[in-house]
Simulated assay, not measured.
Amino acid sequence: MAIYAFWNNKGGVGKSYLTFQVATEYARQHPEKRVLVIDLCPQANSSSMLLGGLVHGEAALDQLSLAAPPRTISGYIEDRVRSPYVSPRSGGHYVVQVSATNPEVPPNVHLVCGDEQLEIQSSRVLGATNPGPQDAWRIVHQWISDLISDITVGWDDYTVFIDCNPSFTIYTELAMAASDRLIVPFTADGSSKRAVRALLALIYGVQRNPGAQISQFYLNTQQFRLTTPRIYAYVGNRLTQNLGPASAFRAVVNEIGDEIFRVWLANPNQFEIHPNGALPPRTRTEFKRMFQYQINDANTSSVVSSTLGIPMHRLVAGIKNVMGRNVMVNQTQLNSLQPNIRDFVQEIE
Rank of each mutant, 00 (worst) to 15 (best):
E32I: 05
S122A: 12
V86T: 13
Q222S: 03
A278C: 08
M290G: 05
Q21C: 07
L174K: 05
R284I: 03
D156H: 12
L147G: 08
A60C: 10
W155G: 04
T152N: 03
M1G: 10
I341R: 09
V263A: 10
Y232I: 01
C41H: 11
G11M: 00
V196F: 05
K288I: 04
S306W: 07
T300V: 10
M176P: 10
Q142C: 11
V140H: 06
G52I: 06
R225G: 15
R208Q: 12
Q346V: 01
D156Y: 05
I319L: 12
R342Q: 11
H93A: 14
W137C: 03
E58S: 02
G53D: 02
A100R: 15
E349R: 04
S305E: 09
I151Q: 03
A266L: 13
L126D: 04
V196K: 11
Q207E: 09
S65Y: 06
S65K: 13
S247N: 09
Y4L: 07
I162T: 12
Q134D: 12
V153N: 10
A68S: 06
E173K: 04
G324P: 09
R82D: 13
R71I: 08
G324N: 07
L200V: 10
I151W: 08
H274N: 06
N209T: 15
N9K: 02
Y17E: 13
W7S: 00
H274P: 13
A59E: 14
F217G: 07
N330F: 12
T152M: 02
G277A: 00
E32T: 10
L243I: 14
V196A: 11
Y94D: 01
N8M: 00
S46I: 06
P245N: 06
T187H: 07
Q121K: 10
Q270C: 12
Y204F: 14
I120A: 05
I310R: 09
Q121F: 11
P131H: 11
W264M: 01
M290A: 09
P69M: 02
M312S: 06
G309I: 04
Y204C: 03
D115C: 02
H141R: 09
A246T: 08
R262L: 14
Y204K: 04
I162W: 04
S336Q: 07
L126A: 10
V263G: 06
S16G: 10
Q63V: 02
C164Y: 06
N296E: 01
K33N: 13
A136V: 05
K10E: 07
V140I: 15
D156L: 10
S48P: 00
Y94L: 06
G114V: 01
L315G: 08
T187K: 14
V322Q: 06
W137R: 05
S87L: 05
Q346M: 15
K193F: 13
D189A: 14
R89D: 04
V253G: 12
M1T: 09
F344A: 01
T285C: 03
